[in-house]
C-alpha cells in the first residue's frame, strides 16, 4: 500500500524563540530547524508498517520554503522512499486550511490508503490540518494515535483522549494523526544519509496546484507571555508548608 506522510519544518523543540524587535513576527533566522516531532513519529510509524512486511511505499511531503528540503532529506535518510516539496516562499500562507486543500490535491494524484501526520505542529500549535484534510477528503480520521493496527482494509486505532484511551475502528483509506506515545523515532545513521542523496526529491511550486483561495487568519500582533514572578526561597520544610498553608494551597 501507499502511505503519505506530511511533515513540517519547525524550530527545534529545544530552542527558545524570540519575537522580532519590531513585533512583526517570530525571529526564526539562524535557529536550529527540525522535522516537527509529532510528524517524525508519523514517519517512523509509516516505516514500521513497511518493515512489518507489507508491500508499502512511503511518500513524504512537506509544504514550505526551499529550506524544507533539508527536513525531507532527513526523512529520506530515515527510510522514506520518495519526497516531495510543494514550495512557497510566503510562509504566512502556510495555515491549516491551505495545507489541507493542497494535500487533498496530492491525495487525488497519489491515491494513498493511509495518510499520517503529527497531531499538531509545535510552532503554530493549531492542531487542525489532519482533521481538515480528512473532512475535505470525506474519509475517516483517527487523531492522537498511540497505537495503530492494520488488518483487512481497516485500522484499529488507540487514541489518547483526556478520559483515557479510546479505541476506534476506521475503514481505509483514512487519515491518522500521531501522538507522542506511538513510537520512538529512529536515529539516522551516516550510511543512510549518503544513500538518501540518491533517493528522489521532487520540488513543485505550490502555485502549480492551482488552488482556489482558502480561508485564513490574519495575525496582527505578537507578544511575549506574561512573566511569572518567581524567585522567592524559603529555608526549611516547615517554612515551605507554612507558606503553602498561608496561600491556601494546602489545608
Amino acid at each position: 500500500m501507499k502511505i503519505l506522510v506530511a511533515i513540517k519544518r519547525v524550530v527545534d523543540y529545544n530552542v527558545r524563540v524570540q519575537i522580532k524587535r519590531d513585533g512583526s513576527g517570530v525571529a526564526t533566522d539562524g535557529l536550529k530547524m527540525s522535522i516537527n516531532p509529532f510528524d517524525e513519529i508519523a514517519l517512523e510509524e509509516a516505516l514500521r508498517i513497511r518493515e512489518a512486511g507489507t508491500d508499502t511505499q512511503v511518500l513524504v511531503v512537506s509544504i514550505g520554503s526551499q529550506s524544507a528540503q533539508q527536513q525531507l532529506r532527513t526523512a529520506l535518510a530515515m527510510g522514506a522512499d520518495r519526497a516531495l516539496l510543494l514550495s512557497t516562499e510566503d510562509e504566512s500562507q502556510i495555515q491549516p486550511p491551505l495545507l489541507a486543500h493542497a494535500l487533498l490535491k496530492l491525495i487525488e494524484q497519489e491515491s494513498p490508503e493511509l495518510v499520517l501526520m503529527g497531531k499538531q505542529a509545535i510552532d503554530d500549535d493549531a492542531n487542525q490540518t489532519g482533521q481538515m484534510l480528512a473532512a475535505l477528503w470525506g474519509r475517516p480520521q483517527a487523531t492522537f494515535a498511540s497505537k495503530i493496527e492494520l488488518a483487512a482494509g481497516l485500522a484499529t486505532v488507540t487514541r489518547e483522549v483526556d478520559e483515557g484511551l479510546e479505541l476506534i475502528r476506521v475503514e481505509l483509506p483514512a487519515l491518522i494523526t500521531t501522538d507522542l506515545r506511538l513510537n520512538t523515532p529512529r536515529f539516522v545513521k551516516m550510511p543512510d544519509i549518503m544513500k538518501a542523496k540518491r533517493k528522489p526529491l521532487e520540488i513543485r511550486p505550490l502555485v502549480e496546484l492551482d488552488l482556489e483561495p482558502t480561508p485564513h487568519l490574519e495575525t496582527f500582533a505578537y507578544e511575549p507571555p506574561p512573566k511569572r514572578q518567581g524567585g522567592h526561597k524559603v529555608d526549611s520544610v516547615a517554612a515551605l508548608v507554612a507558606t503553602l498553608k498561608a496561600k491556601g494551597v494546602i489545608e
Partner: peptide, 23 residues
C-alpha cells in the same frame, strides 16, 4: 479545546469552508 473539541471542531470548520482559531 479538549481532545474531543480538538478532534471535532476543525473537521466541522473545514466542512463549513471556514478557518478556525484554536485555543
Amino acid at each position: 479545546s479538549t481532545t474531543c473539541g480538538k478532534d471535532v471542531l476543525p473537521r466541522a470548520a473545514a466542512l463549513a469552508g471556514a478557518a478556525m482559531v484554536s485555543d
